[in-house]
Structures are given as C-alpha cells and as structure tokens.
Amino acid sequence: MLLDDLIDSAQSDELLDEFAKREIRRAILAAVAIPGYQVPFGSREMPVARGWGSGGLQITLAVVHDDDVVKVIDQGDDDGVNAVNLRRLVTTSTGADQTSIAAEASVIQSRHRIPEDGLDEESILVLQVPVPEPLRGVERDMRELARMHAEADYSRMWVSLYEDKVRNGVITQTTGYPCLVNDRYVVATTPIPRWDIPRLHESPFLTLFGAGREKRIYAIPPRTKVEPLTFEDVPFEVEHADGATCSLCKSNAAFLVSLPNSDVWMCSDTDWCRRTREASA
C-alpha cells in the first residue's frame, strides 16, 4: 500500500480500515460455523464508546454494502438517541440506505430487542452485546470459564436455575436469558427480553452478536435449535401483564413497556406499533 492510499483512507468517511473489516468477516464466518461459540476478534475502537454498541457497529460495518438497507433500533425504538447516532454513522460511512420497516431492511442492528415482525431469510440481525459470557454469574475465573465451555460443562448453570426456583418460586432471570444453541454452547442472548427468545429458535434469519468491549463475536445461523435453559417441568415464561394492551395501537401481541406506576402501556417496537395503527385506521 502506498502512502497516498493511506492518506486517502484517512480522509474518507470510513470508520474501519479494510483489513479490520476482513478480519471481522473472518470472525463472523467462524461464529456461523460454530453456532454459539464466542469467537475472539481484534475489536477496534469506534467513534462510539465501548458498551455503546461498538461491537454491533463493527459487525454492521463489516457486512453492509452500499446497496444494503439498514434499520437501527435501541429498545425497539428507531428514534432513540443511540439508535439515531449509530444509524447516521452507518449510513454516512457506508452509503447504505435506511428504513424503519424491518421487512425492508437487509441488516438490522439492535440493542435489546428483536423487531416484532418482518425478519426473513434475507435479514441479518446484529445484536449489541454488553456481556457475552453467560456463565459469568456462576464463575469469574476466565480460565475456568474457557474449560466449562470447552467441555460443555454447564451443570453449575443448571444449579443456579435450580437454586433460583427453590428460593424465589420462579426463575428470576430477566433479560439476556441463557440459551443452549445447537445442543452445544450456552450463550447470553444479550439483554433481549424473554419475549424475544422464542423467535431465535429455528429462525429464518441470521443473528450476529457483537461484544466490542469484550472482543467477542458469536452467531446463531438460520434454522438453528435455540432452547432457553429451563427444566422440563418448569415452563419458560415470557414477560406478561394481565390485561395490558398498547395505548396507541390497542394490541397485546407485542412486547409492551409502561409508564412508571401506571396502567398506560406502549409497544417497545415503535415501527410495528405505527404500522399496526395505520392498518387499523
């Protein structure tokens, strides 16, 4: 490479150099080949801070072309400040088009949610992961964690679920529910709500998980078995509130969030809510 190229590259809108993108694509391929395995990669520093979607952003930049259409959401909301910030970084640096409609998007970068609908064989879902290690709660030593994954030794995870149920009457794990992928690796499902977990199972779309700070990429390829860890006789429970419906679209078929200390509920997937309202209008 010549010095002139370097200078060109430095003055472009690129957030990542081409070698880095290639390296990330290789990590993604490895992740797809071994579903649920956390592939280490040389995570680069991004214009957004660690913990703010730097891993998801690197994946998105590595897979997006200028003919892609991207959707970026935070908490299900296309217009959340973090979603807006990441979307403008992606679109200005790649030239990709943007949409809020999941079905129109080829790449969807998300923090904490899977869109309620619209993902198909053509979609890539990129999830931002703050803590990729599902076993951190039962083991802190990374050498031991590596061994546990290598030997699929997840009994302590099961014991923690057992203890939870004994102590609290229910499994209290809230978001990021641990799942067994392809009968082999236990993964942290980022903090997506339990509501979204069933949609990872045998999904038509590819899900890529990016943890920039912890420098890990993992994947759930299309049509892969994804089971939330739970006992045969303790049903997996998704979020639910009796009688709750969205105050805007009147639906109860989506993940709802509420105002503090009130019975006013709203869809967290704002675009789904908008389309539901438009359809019924």
Partner: peptide
C-alpha cells in the same frame, strides 16, 4: 472501563420492564 460505566446512561427501559415483571412474578 469508562465506556461500560457510562453506558449505564443509555436507555434501559426494556430490561427494566423485564425486571419489574419478574418482581411481580416472584
């Protein structure tokens, strides 16, 4: 460390909703 610390300022209402739901379930 600083990035992860400061990410706590990001919206967390989806996770918080899920936590409240479990409190009532318990």
């Amino acid at each position: 460390s600083a990035g992860f610390l400061e990410h706590l300022k990001l919206p967390h209402y989806v996770t918080f909703r899920s936590m409240i739901e479990r409190k009532f379930a318990m």
